[in-house]
Amino acid sequence: MSQQQPENNNEELRVGVYVCHCGTNIAGVIDPKEVVEFAKGLPDVVHATDTLYACADSGQKQIKEDIKKHKLNRVIVSACSVRMHEATFRGAVSEAGINPFLMEMANIREQCTWAHGHDREGALEKAKDLTASAVAKSRFLTSLDMIEVPVTQKAMVIGAGVAGISAALDLADQGIQTILVEKEPTIGGVMAQLNKTFPTMDCSI
């Protein structure tokens, strides 16, 4: 497990910014092109463009091609929530050879156009600021690798009532060595003490 570094090494930054329309979800309230124009003037931004659906295959393809063409080393996607598509865009940039942690999203849909539908001007200002915020963060992003740990392929189940027994049997049937630990002299738990059990009314053991 290597210690990863919190500082980046002052490499020359080449930031690409993608402002999504999300059909009319975003573009129905603000003009993404205005955000693009704004982004073009931010430090280190070498490429900025709007895109109809950033998450669609075509949108992802465009980002991947641009990474090569413009030698991008940071990607900003101003679109929806990270809870929606962070994994999508991390995947896309890493396919084009950029570390997934060098992609940053700005949430201009759930937390902007959808929440400020009647304040177009306010929404536009906010979309610009959130995009600038993502660009700013990207200046200090560093490549990170998933941390890989070894696994001892053996399980332990603590408590041998009906739940523990069922877990142990399923693990063992999947080929996993399992230690079943029970503090009493017999396994079975409460169920072993019961008379017939609902819903089937059969004997409990």
Binding site: L144, M146, V149, V151, K154, A163, D170, L171, I176
Partner: peptide
Amino acid sequence: VAQGSAASSRASRILQSDHWEIEP
């Protein structure tokens, strides 16, 4: 019983391979 089976499947996600990845 259902939860016992579910837990075994959650655990075997980890145990089926000799390594596991965690967010950095």
